[in-house]
Computed example of a mutant assay.
Amino acid sequence: MPDPRSGPAHPLSVGEVAERSGVSVSTLHFYERENLIEAERTAGNQRRYRRDVLRRLSFIRVSQRVGVPLKDIRSALESLPSGRTPTRHDWERLSKRWREELESRIKALEQLRDDLTDCIGCGCLSLESCALQNPSDRLGSAGPGPRRWTVS
């Protein structure tokens, strides 16, 4: 006979979520404090998570891996429904919202990959090629930081 605690409606303990997601318990607590995920509390004050938290955790981890700040992740997750499991349509809407930002990140990463060997793009004149790409340090007059790598 199947265990009734393993059904789709059965909430998961913090340990079960940690095991299933590969995220440490302390990280789950941090995500909860940062309002990235939610937990309900039992009468004994133990955390219980709805199963859709596993998808949210995957989204958080992948987003972090590509450099998306937590504030942007939080904003994206806030656009998902909180009273029900997000549908495919909900995730598609979030994806469309992020498309432009992700394309911009991809462009910046490709530029970094292609230009890193020659110059960091800051006008420092520290490499031989800088004198050719940035004569008289003209980029230095635009202020500190990289100038050739700004994504428009």
Score class of each variant (00 low, 15 high):
A18L: 05
S129I: 14
D90F: 01
D52R: 13
R20H: 09
P8W: 10
V53H: 01
T42S: 05
L77Q: 01
S58N: 15
S21Q: 09
E128G: 11
G22H: 03
Q133T: 06
R93K: 15
S75R: 15
P146L: 15
E16C: 05
L116C: 14
S63A: 09
D72R: 13
G44I: 00
A131K: 06
L54S: 02
L70Y: 02
A9L: 10
E40R: 09
V23T: 10
P11Q: 13
L116E: 12
D115Y: 03
E92D: 13
G83D: 15
D114H: 06
R99M: 13
Q64K: 05
Q64D: 03
G143Y: 08
L132Q: 13
A43P: 02
H89Q: 13
L112D: 06
P69N: 05
L77E: 00
M1I: 13
T27E: 04
K96S: 10
E100P: 10
R97A: 08
W149Q: 10
L80Y: 02
R113V: 12
N134R: 01
S141K: 10
S13A: 11
I37W: 00
V151D: 14
L80T: 00
H10E: 09
D52L: 09
C130V: 10
Q64H: 02
V53K: 00
C119W: 02
G123D: 00
P81I: 00
V53A: 03
K107C: 12
L127M: 09
H29Y: 10
D3V: 07
L102G: 01
N134G: 01
T87D: 05
I37Y: 00
P2Y: 14
R61D: 00
A9N: 14
R41D: 05
K71S: 11
W149C: 08
C130M: 12
S141C: 10
G44Y: 00
Q46W: 11
E32Y: 08
S21Y: 12
S79N: 03
R65C: 06
D3Q: 13
R148A: 12
R105V: 02
F59N: 05
